[in-house]
């Protein structure tokens, strides 16, 4: 028996002209997305580079944003430490509030609601996703905030022993907690809609297998639907988180921007990179504009990082439930 294997052949096909043309069209349009993303990132980096060079790493950690510009010479101490922490904090609050609400809503719509309620809710939720964010902001300011301040006070009074709910002074207005609630309302539709979609694809044969083993609805959902949909829910959560990071107007309306790191979610002082950029934009001099673009670049990287993390999480869990 000979053990020399034949040379592996190159397998190819001769595509038809129409296929070549279509392939060219979809490829070029597909790459437009990548090109735009790269150009924006490159622009921000290019314009902000001087600031990164001057400020160094302290641009990320410095809490102050103090800057004087006289006859083109700028001096001062600038950094987005407080703004970055504030962004993460409010987004985290939003995610913690929105995730359970969204997953439970999606389960209700898919497995418990009659069909007409499901259809109606899906329309409403899609509408919510497309709702202009300034309206969420205004509503948050006028309607939600007075109640949310009271909830914050209760949380502080009864759960204040828990470090997260401590405050140094009883000042609850325009806190990261309230900004987080407004963001939560904004990202609930996104997470709900993605979760509902993946839950509805849970394989029928496994669902039936669970029922045939004496499962009730809840134990079936636990054993089949949640493991199957987990990575989709994570993906939806990351989409929501991305929006929470970048949201500007709604946060600007309900958050008290303070240039000092505050980890007390209930205390009325927070930070937000996007809102910060908007606030300073109008009166910024040449160097400050560069600094704001640099801040934008950091936000850009943060969003990319979250997306890569989401991808990683999904890839790690993908084999388990499918």
């Amino acid at each position: 028996m000979s053990n020399t294997l034949p040379v592996q052949r190159k397998i190819s096909t001769k595509p038809r002209p129409s296929d070549v043309a279509f392939r060219g069209i979809v490829t070029s349009f597909g790459f437009i997305n990548l090109a735009i993303l790269t150009l924006i990132g490159a622009f921000l980096l290019f314009r902000g580079f001087e600031v990164f060079r001057v400020e160094g790493f302290s641009f990320l950690t410095d809490q102050r944003w103090e800057l004087t510009e006289e006859s083109g010479v700028s001096s001062g101490n600038i950094g987005i430490g407080a703004m970055l922490v504030g962004t993460l904090l409010a987004a985290l609050v939003a995610l913690i509030v929105a995730l359970p609400v969204s997953v439970l809503t999606a389960l209700m719509l898919n497995f418990y609601a009659p069909i007409w309620i499901r259809n109606f809710f899906v329309t409403v939720i899609d509408l919510m996703a497309a709702f202009p964010s300034i309206l969420f902001g205004l509503w948050g300011f006028f309607v939600l905030m007075p109640s949310a301040e009271y909830w914050a006070m209760l949380l502080n009074r009864y759960l204040g022993w828990f470090p997260v709910f401590q405050v140094d002074q009883p000042f609850f207005t325009r806190s990261p907690f309230i900004a987080g609630l407004v963001l939560a309302i904004m990202i609930i539709p996104i997470i709900t809609s993605v979760s509902r979609e993946v839950f509805s694809q849970a394989p029928l044969d496994r669902i039936q297998a669970a029922y045939s083993l004496g499962a009730n609805k809840w134990s079936m959902i636990k054993a089949v639907v949640l493991p199957f949909g987990a990575n989709g829910v994570v993906g939806g959560a990351m989409l929501g988180l991305g929006r929470a990071f970048g949201e500007t107007v709604a946060v600007y309306t309900v958050l008290n921007l303070v240039y000092s790191i505050n980890l007390q979610v209930l205390f009325g002082a927070g930070g937000n990179v996007a809102s910060h950029i908007v606030t300073r934009w109008g009166e910024a001099g040449e160097y400050e504009v560069k600094a704001l673009l640099a801040a934008g670049f950091v936000l850009f990287l943060l969003t990319l990082l979250v997306n890569f993390m989401a991808d990683w999480v999904v890839k790690r869990t993908v084999r388990k439930g499918r």
Binding site: D205, R206, A209, A210, G214, A215, M220, A223, R322
Partner: peptide, 25 residues
């Protein structure tokens, strides 16, 4: 038992055998 084999892919072989116990609480 169904036409198409449908073990729970998120569970091990042993857990699959015990899945009914868990599902039916």
């Amino acid at each position: 038992v169904f036409q198409k084999p449908n073990p729970f892919p998120s569970m091990s072989i042993g857990e699959n055998v015990l899945s009914g116990i868990k599902l039916a609480q």
